[in-house]
């Protein structure tokens, strides 16, 4: 608005120069989603890996500097044609099994893998054992199912309430 033509031309030149600079920069670091297939594989692999900085996030999710770097490394390795297993090996060689959200089955992790099933088996075993023993017991081994009014706390409370309501001179 109200700008003289030379000033506009100068601005235009400046804009072109700046844009050229931006393009040059873009050449050095191509957009990360340039290759969608690689990007998809990268995300799939890094979603199974724990970020060591924000430990409850995956490397795919985390914005921590290290996660960004490890995504870059993963991308580079995929471009070099490395397999998924090779990339996971690369990570565990540096950071240990800790990076794996699915821990491998080893002697040290056997309890982790089979512990829950083992507990379920033990619990089920105890239940079956107890029920079978009880089914073999004579009927007189059990207390009869009689309601005992005196032991009902609600009745007790009601009785107390009734008593205190009946007491004169209160309130």
């Amino acid at each position: 608005m109200g700008r003289s033509a030379p000033a506009f031309a100068r601005a235009l030149v400046a804009a072109v120069v700046l844009a050229a600079g931006a393009l040059a920069a873009a050449k050095e670091a191509p957009p990360e989603a340039a290759d969608l297939a690689i990007e998809a594989r990268m995300v799939r692999i890094t979603s199974e890996l724990r970020c060591l900085v924000c430990q409850n996030q995956t490397i795919a999710d985390s914005n921590a500097g290290l996660a960004v770097d490890l995504r870059r490394e993963t991308r580079d390795m995929l471009k070099q044609g490395k397999s998924d297993a090779e990339i996971v090996d690369y990570m565990t060689a540096r950071y240990g099994d800790f990076v794996l959200y699915r821990p491998p089955l080893r002697a040290t992790t056997a309890l982790l893998w089979f512990g829950p099933a083992l507990l379920l088996l033990i619990g089920g075993g105890v239940l079956v054992f107890t029920l079978r023993r009880r089914s073999r017991m004579a009927a007189d081994a059990f207390d009869p199912d009689v309601e005992d009014d005196d032991l009902d706390p609600l009745d007790d409370a009601a009785a107390t309430a009734a008593r205190s309501a009946a007491t004169p001179g209160r309130g």
């Binding site: 540096r94 950071y95 240990g96």
Partner: peptide, 13 residues
């Protein structure tokens, strides 16, 4: 500068 050697050493913090 780019932290690649750090990654090789398993540096995370």
């Amino acid at each position: 500068e780019d932290g690649r050697v750090g990654i090789d050493f398993g540096v995370y913090g």
